[in-house]
């Protein structure tokens, strides 16, 4: 049951991202060219509804299915890591046309060359782990 609920939410996520075309390289290109509202509408409405949902969760002291109070751990303070890391991520996002979620989803759509991108992303994460103490955060 526990296994199925997480696989199930993943399936739902995969279907939504394909049907919304948010996994498309072309949609990412179009977004960064400011030529369509589509991606902004997706992200904007997700954040708007997401913010309202989290606000209600916190206001009503809702508990999760494990019985714990809902608590989203705040991100660490800092500036360089978010802006530099963000820019590096953005460069890759616009080149691959896919961020980590869509990479897996696109693999499922039958684009097996995506395995190269995923392997390179794992390598990138590994190299970050090696250099972590030397980078400004």
């Amino acid at each position: 049951m526990k296994i199925l609920k997480f696989i199930g939410i993943g399936i739902f996520f995969g279907i939504v991202l394909v049907k919304s075309e948010a996994v498309s390289w072309y949609r990412i290109f179009e977004m960064f060219k400011f030529q369509s509202f589509h991606m902004y509408g997706i992200i904007g409405s997700a954040v708007f509804l997401g913010a309202a949902t989290i606000w209600i969760f916190k206001k009503t002291n809702l508990k999760d299915t494990e019985g714990n109070k809902i608590n989203l751990p705040p991100k660490d303070k800092g500036f360089p890591r978010y802006i530099i890391g963000g820019i590096i991520f953005g460069l890759g996002w616009a080149l691959a046309g896919a961020c980590p979620g869509p990479m897996y989803i696109l693999l499922g759509t039958g684009v097996f060359s995506m395995l190269i991108v995923i392997a390179a992303a794992v390598l990138g994460t590994f190299v970050y782990g090696l250099l972590r103490d030397k980078l400004p955060h």
């Binding site: 991520f89 890759g92 896919a98 990138g124 994460t125 590994f126």
Partner: peptide, 10 residues
């Protein structure tokens, strides 16, 4: 892929 993986963790 490398930029995505490095950047996202950073």
């Amino acid at each position: 892929g490398f930029l995505v993986g490095f950047g996202t963790r950073y």
